[in-house]
């Protein structure tokens, strides 16, 4: 009997803390989205509750006058291209490093891994200069290159293990059949390592999509703004108009939230694999 009371007590406590925790996560997001539908006057009179009516004026204004569609397509473009290239070249390197034994193989792997703890921000001054001399400062290409570089260490780190786990017998058999080394990669390794490629892509997606520092220093023309930079700039421009500001924030968040809710399992699997292994 006593045991049972104690247990229900603990249960109650557990649920209580879970409710607080989930409210602390959901409330700010809920307020953000609800406020974006209110009028400026309503925000001051009724900051917490539901909007009297859902008005989409601020969203319409963002797309029609503030060119939001452009920022969205810029972000999609930069993210997809940079992730695709980063993961492709990382897969090449990981294959060469994990399936062949040569003198400096360990050293090169370590060289890539250092990148996991190197803050690339500290090289910003030189990156700006390089982009200027390549004549791509203030273009999406400058962002793409930086994001490729940023995604390489983690991708190599993940793909190295995925490729290593593929049994050597498969490739030796192919080799006996006269398959070339790169042929082995494309015909045997690549199809088998698809989950690894997906994991690497998913993990780099969030930091890449949300990255604010490099657009801030590399992009000056509005036509090339990505969503985070547009968020920062529009927030400054509309700061007296709360409905618009919250609409800006909602627009920046909703796509990632949806993608996460759809792919939650993969996100968690990919990320925790990295953590446990390390």
């Amino acid at each position: 009997m006593i045991n049972k009371i104690k247990k229900t007590g603990i249960r109650a406590l557990l649920y209580f803390s879970m409710i607080i925790y989930s409210l602390s996560i959901i409330m700010p997001l809920f307020i953000m989205i609800m406020t974006s539908f209110k009028s400026n006057a309503e925000i001051f009179n009724n900051p917490l509750g539901l909007p009297a009516s859902f008005k989409f004026d601020s969203y319409i204004r963002l797309f029609e006058k503030a060119n939001y569609g452009q920022y969205f397509s810029n972000s999609v473009f930069v993210t997809i291209i940079s992730l695709a290239i980063a993961i492709t070249i990382s897969a090449f390197a990981s294959y060469a490093l994990s399936k062949y034994q040569f003198k400096i193989q360990k050293f090169i792997y370590g060289y890539f891994i250092i990148g996991l703890i190197v803050p690339i921000k500290l090289g910003t001054i030189d990156i700006m200069k390089t982009m200027l001399s390549l004549n791509i400062y203030d273009t999406l290409a400058s962002l793409i290159i930086v994001y490729i570089a940023m995604a390489i260490p983690l991708s190599v780190f993940i793909l190295y293990d995925y490729i290593k786990m593929i049994p050597d017998e498969l490739s030796s058999a192919a080799r006996i059949d006269g398959c070339t080394e790169h042929g082995i990669f494309f015909k045997i390794i690549a199809p088998l390592v698809k989950p690894g490629l997906a994991a690497a892509g998913i993990i780099s997606f969030i930091p890449n999509w949300n990255e604010f520092w490099f657009p801030l220093v590399l992009i000056k023309t509005r036509d090339f703004f990505t969503i985070p930079l547009a968020t920062g700039q529009l927030f400054g421009q509309f700061d007296t108009k709360f409905d618009l500001v919250f609409a800006v924030l909602s627009l920046a968040s909703i796509p990632v939230i949806i993608i996460y809710l759809l792919l939650a399992k993969q996100f968690v699997k990919g990320l925790s694999a990295g953590a446990v292994k390390g």
């Binding site: 004549n135 273009t139 290409a141």
Partner: peptide
Amino acid sequence: SLLAIGCSKG
């Protein structure tokens, strides 16, 4: 393709 993006702006 990368360079093309860069140049297209120029």
